[in-house]
Computed example of a mutant assay.
Amino acid sequence: MPLPHPDLSVGTPSLFSLKGKVCLITGGARGIGLSIAHAFLESCCAGLALTYTSSSTAPKLAEELSKQYGVSVKAYKTDVRSKEEVSKLFTDLTADFESLDVVVANAGVSFHYDSLEMPEEKYHDLMKVNVDGVWWTATEAGRAFKKQARAGGNKGNFIVTGSASSVLVNVPQKQAVYNASKAAVVHLTKSLAVEWASWGGRANAVSPGFIETDMIGSLPEEWKEKWMTMIPAERFCAPDELKGAYVFLASDASSYVTGVNLIVDGAYTLP
Rank of each mutant, 00 (worst) to 15 (best):
V185F: 00
N170R: 09
V167M: 06
A193V: 06
K190M: 13
V185D: 01
N179H: 14
K243W: 00
G162F: 01
I231T: 07
A184I: 09
F236T: 03
L192Y: 03
A193L: 07
Q175Y: 00
L192D: 11
S166D: 11
V167S: 09
A233T: 11
M230Q: 15
A197C: 07
W223K: 04
W196F: 01
K224F: 01
W223S: 06
V177M: 06
V167T: 14
A203Q: 01
L188D: 03
L242M: 07
G162Y: 01
W199C: 11
C237E: 10
P172I: 05
E212M: 04
L242E: 09
A176K: 02
S191R: 14
Y178C: 11
V206G: 04
W227V: 11
Q175E: 15
A245H: 03
L168Q: 09
K224C: 07
V177E: 04
L242P: 12
M215I: 12
E234T: 10
K174D: 15
S166N: 08
L168I: 14
I216H: 08
K190D: 07
V194G: 05
V167A: 07
L192H: 04
V177F: 00
E225V: 11
P220M: 04
S191K: 14
L168N: 05
K174N: 15
Y178M: 10
K182L: 11
G162N: 07
N179F: 05
D240N: 10
L168D: 04
K174Y: 06
A164L: 13
W227S: 09
E225N: 12
M228C: 10
G162H: 03
G217T: 10
C237R: 02
A164I: 12
P208V: 05
T213V: 07
A180E: 03
F236Q: 08
S191P: 11
G201S: 05
A183C: 11
V194L: 13
P232M: 01
M228Y: 02
P220Y: 00
K182V: 11
D240R: 14
L242Y: 01
E234M: 12
Y178H: 05
R202C: 05
V169T: 15
K243R: 09
V194T: 12
Y178W: 03
R235I: 01
F210G: 05
L242T: 07
V171L: 10
K224E: 05
A184T: 13
T229E: 13
P220Q: 05
W227P: 12
T189L: 01
V171Y: 07
S181Y: 01
E241L: 04
V194F: 02
M215N: 05
M228H: 06
P208E: 08
L192C: 08
W199F: 10
A205R: 02
L168H: 03
A176W: 00
L219I: 13
A205C: 12
S191H: 12
A164W: 00
D214Q: 14
Y246Q: 03
L168P: 10
